[in-house]
């Protein structure tokens, strides 16, 4: 008997299986994009029609002009970029420090990560909302960025320590012999080697902060300060839902996530496989 995957029928079945799964995976994205261009009359009269009869950009215009989504996109960019920048600086230093100077702790990285990962966001939400009120940071981006560091830094340290572990010690020692100090070795020798990993970690952090919902819901309530996820949620507050607007806004939010994700997909997976093999 030949194993599945060797015979022609077996291979054909695998392709069929993967094609069906792919349709399931992609259909929702395609569907919201197509829906966002359909007129409301068409949505009601032909719920199963695939392509819009008449393309309308009305919803996009309304979302960007009337609902001021451009402001929310800007808010999200400011919050996510600041959180990502701080996360990457702090975590690169931390991950390298652990891997090089505290190797014993480095071997337990995964367990340390899981321990911090275990703290439920909803548990942190109680003290955060109390502390943020006390500090007078309600409705500020600073408050939101601070809370985002709580989940992005542990994860980034874990991802980065995987990348730093791949840097051969000999390269660093050679630089040390040439008289470079620890900081210079880090900045001029080690960082360039792991740069692709740092970029992947930065993008992953950016996506996670861009998509975050709970803390933004609890800490920001003025629509001018809202990041995009909560602004989207506020569309559900009205009596009659405007699905066209909701779809157009969804497409605007999701496209950057998907593009970035495609760029780094291989890096994310590699880290975990290597991390647990050790």
């Amino acid at each position: 008997m030949r194993p599945v995957g060797r015979s022609k029928v077996g291979v054909a079945l695998l392709y069929l299986f993967l094609s069906l799964l792919s349709v399931l995976a992609v259909f929702p994205l395609v569907w919201i994009i197509l829906s966002s261009f359909k007129t409301s009359g068409e949505m009601a009269s032909h719920p199963l029609a695939f392509f819009p009869e008449t393309f309308t950009f009305e919803y996009y215009r309304r979302v960007l002009n009337n609902l001021h989504f451009a402001t929310n996109i800007k808010n999200s960019l400011i919050v996510s970029l600041s959180a990502t920048l701080i996360t990457i600086v702090v975590s690169s230093l931390g991950a390298y420090g652990i891997v090089r100077f505290f190797p014993k702790a480095g071997k337990r990285m995964t367990k340390l990560l899981i321990t911090t990962y275990m703290f439920p966001p909803i548990l942190l939400a109680v003290p955060y909302s109390i502390i943020i009120i006390k500090l007078g940071l309600v409705n500020t981006w600073t408050g939101l960025v601070i809370t985002y560091l709580s989940f992005s830094i542990p994860y980034a340290i874990w991802m980065l320590s995987g990348f730093f572990q791949t840097v051969p010690l000999e390269i660093e020692e050679a630089a040390r012999v040439d008289g470079a100090g620890k900081w210079r070795v880090f900045v001029q020798v080690v960082l360039p080697i792991v740069a692709p990993g740092v970029v992947a970690t930065a993008i992953y952090t950016f996506i996670n902060t861009w998509n975050e919902f709970l803390f933004a819901l609890l800490l920001i309530n003025s629509s001018g300060k809202m990041p995009i996820s909560v602004a989207l949620y506020s569309l559900t507050g009205s009596e009659i839902l405007d699905w066209g607007e909701m779809m157009a806004a969804s497409v605007i939010v999701i496209l950057p996530s998907i593009v970035f994700f495609m760029l780094i997909q291989r890096k994310i997976a590699g880290g975990m496989a290597e991390g647990s093999v050790k």
Binding site: L18, L21, S22, A25, V26, P28, L29, W31, I32, I207, W210, N211, F213, S229, L232, Y233, M246, M247, S250, V253, I254, S257, I258, F260, F261, M262, Q265
Partner: peptide, 15 residues
């Protein structure tokens, strides 16, 4: 197949 992973929770819900 990886596309669903990139969806933010709010967009998953709307979709």
């Amino acid at each position: 197949l990886i596309i669903p992973w990139a969806f933010p929770a709010i967009v998953i819900a709307f979709t």
